[in-house]
């Protein structure tokens, strides 16, 4: 479905900055692939480059077998019907002056399948229902909804054009954990039901492990390691991956514990401030 070979993404600057260098990455049809890396690793740049928001300065991007790098006009239009991107901050990625129903409806209109305004409205509502939003949500403006609800709107909008590949760029990073859980559950379900391919991008290794079948690890613009999820997490080959995994907090882990969990704190007299 998606094939990146030797991808290089450079921002013009000044000074020119190469965010991604020599990246090879595959997303098979219907697969969920995870891309994990710390900040500045270039993972978001990859997503932006695929949909034409960042310039591909080298290498190739093949979507559904056809070249997509440096796409112009018509090719770009087609591309944007096959691949869609959901941004990290839903509050920033929705037009504050448009009702969310209108935003989704606009995307439906662009998809071009429904002629009638009434049909489009119905389709927009269907999409909002698909992402578990209540009926009244369509008339709301973004500032009236919570982060989780807005992210659902963003997902609905992305789905409106019937893409086959969904790029999810840190989509739960700005959400509460309970909301994150719901969104992740929703995404997994939608992916299965709609037979979508998905590329999950995140700095959160636990989230990536939970949603992906295959995982790529990025550092400073390059892919450091990749492999099937279970294998990579249980037996990482590269030092960098190991150090990342070692730093992830685990419930009940004892990395920093100096006394056993549940033991009382040291006595008051131990305090040098006395």
């Amino acid at each position: 479905m998606l094939e990146l070979r030797g991808l290089r993404v450079t921002y013009p600057g000044p000074p020119p900055y190469t965010a991604v260098e020599g990246v090879d990455l595959d997303v098979a049809a219907g697969a969920a692939v995870g891309l994990v890396g710390e900040s500045g690793s270039g993972k978001s740049s990859i997503a932006r480059a695929i949909v034409g928001l960042a310039r591909v300065s080298g290498g190739s991007v093949r979507v559904d077998g056809r070249e997509a790098a440096a796409a112009r006009r018509r090719r770009l239009q087609e591309l944007r019907r096959t691949v869609q991107l959901v941004f990290q901050d839903p509050r920033a990625s929705l037009n504050p002056r448009m009702q969310v129903g209108a935003t989704v409806q606009e995307a439906v209109a662009i998809a071009g399948e429904r002629r009638d305004a009434r049909d489009r409205r119905a389709e927009a509502r269907r999409l909002l229902e698909l992402v578990d939003l209540p009926a009244g949500a369509a008339e709301r403006y973004p500032h009236e909804l919570s982060g989780g609800q807005l992210q659902r709107v963003a997902i609905a909008r992305a789905l409106a054009v019937r893409p086959r590949l969904l790029l999810l760029d840190e989509v739960t990073a700005s959400l509460d954990v309970s909301v994150q859980a719901r969104i992740l559950n929703l995404l997994r379900r939608l992916q299965r039901e709609l037979e979508l391919s998905a590329l999950y991008i995140s700095h959160d290794l636990s989230v990536i492990r939970y949603v992906s079948d295959h995982v790529y690890v990025m550092q400073r613009g390059r892919i450091v390691e990749d492999g099937p999820c279970e294998a990579l997490f249980s037996a990482p080959r590269r030092e960098y991956t190991r150090s990342l995994l070692a730093a992830v907090p685990t419930l009940g882990g004892d990395r920093w514990r100096r006394r056993p969990a549940g033991a009382p704190a040291p006595a008051a007299s131990a305090n040098p401030n006395d």
């Binding site: 944007r80 941004f87 920033a92 990625s93 929705l94 037009n95 606009e106 995307a107 662009i110 992305a158």
Partner: peptide
């Protein structure tokens, strides 16, 4: 420069 304009462009607006 905002995200919502970029998002709209990606949608095809």
């Amino acid at each position: 420069a905002r995200d919502y304009v970029a998002a709209a462009r990606v949608t095809g607006v």
